[in-house]
Computed example of a mutant assay.
Amino acid sequence: MKKYLLIPFLIILTSMVQAQPMQIGWQDLQGKVEPYQDPFAALTDDQLFNLSVYGRITEMKTLYPLYEITDAMLKEAEEAKAQLIKENINIEYMFEQRDIIMKKRQKAALITNDLLANREIQMSGYMLALEFDNGTVSEFLLVPTIGACSHKPVPPANQLIFVKAATPVHAGSPYMPIKITGTLRVTPEVKDLYLVDGKKQVRMAYSLEDAIVEQFIATH
């Protein structure tokens, strides 16, 4: 008798486990990227700064010949170049790699984790409202950090989720920390984000409709 009672119990328990949303973090949204060597990762902050100074002023001379390059700027560029040479940094090679690495980073930013497509998930982040209606928000972006898209650079597309809440949410503060639950969709698209200083186009890779939205206390 006990054996037969155990089977239905296991079936119920299994269904309860399967019904629980998958807890995920921002790193889970990133798809697999073919490994590549980034020569800039080995540079120090000072070397990166000197490379940017030399590159910026050199490009200004080439692309904007009518722009007045001051003696002070030329001196700064030469000093940066001399320091890089002294530290055995191959400037020409680094400039060649810059465009290559940039394209690889851009490609990596668009790669999604298709294993999460149409899965019931739960994750936390910060709400960036797209529209307000009497203090409530129905559509927003879930972003990984405070200030993303407005005060800070726009995160990669696979680090943004367009969310439609099941019920309007009272937005207590800008970048309110929240937890969302719902079915994640892989839906690459571009939306206009209207900010105080103008309009900005934001590319996102995921969406989530009829989301359950809960406020939570961020730990960091």
Results as ranks from 00 to 15, higher is better:
M1C: 11
K3S: 13
K3G: 04
I7G: 02
P8C: 02
F9H: 05
F9W: 07
I12M: 00
I12Y: 00
S15D: 00
Q23G: 05
G25E: 13
G25I: 00
D28A: 03
Q30R: 08
Q30S: 08
V33L: 01
D38C: 05
A42C: 01
L43A: 12
T44E: 07
D45Y: 05
D45E: 13
Q47Y: 04
Q47F: 05
Q47W: 05
F49S: 10
N50S: 10
Y54M: 15
G55Y: 11
T58S: 15
T58K: 13
T58C: 10
E59H: 11
L63K: 15
Y64L: 14
I69A: 11
T70C: 11
M73E: 15
M73H: 10
M73R: 14
E78N: 13
E79Y: 01
L84M: 12
L84N: 08
E87L: 12
I89C: 07
N90Q: 12
Y93F: 14
Q97E: 15
R98H: 13
I100Q: 08
I101C: 15
I101D: 15
M102E: 15
M102D: 09
M102K: 15
M102T: 01
K103M: 13
K103L: 10
R105F: 04
K107S: 12
K107F: 08
A108Q: 09
A109N: 05
I111C: 09
I111G: 08
L115P: 00
L116K: 10
A117F: 07
A117H: 15
E120P: 15
Y126I: 01
M127N: 02
L128Q: 01
A129C: 03
F132W: 03
D133H: 04
G135N: 03
G135K: 07
G135C: 05
T136L: 11
S138D: 11
L141R: 12
L142Q: 09
V143G: 03
I146H: 08
I146R: 06
H151K: 11
H151V: 04
K152V: 01
K152T: 08
P153V: 08
A166Q: 12
T167E: 14
V169N: 06
S173I: 14
Y175G: 00
P177N: 10
P177M: 08
K179I: 14
T181C: 04
G182L: 09
T183M: 13
L184Q: 08
P188N: 05
Y194A: 02
L195G: 01
R203L: 03
L208R: 09
L208Q: 06
E209W: 07
D210T: 05
D210Q: 13
A211C: 07
V213H: 02
Q215N: 11
T219M: 12
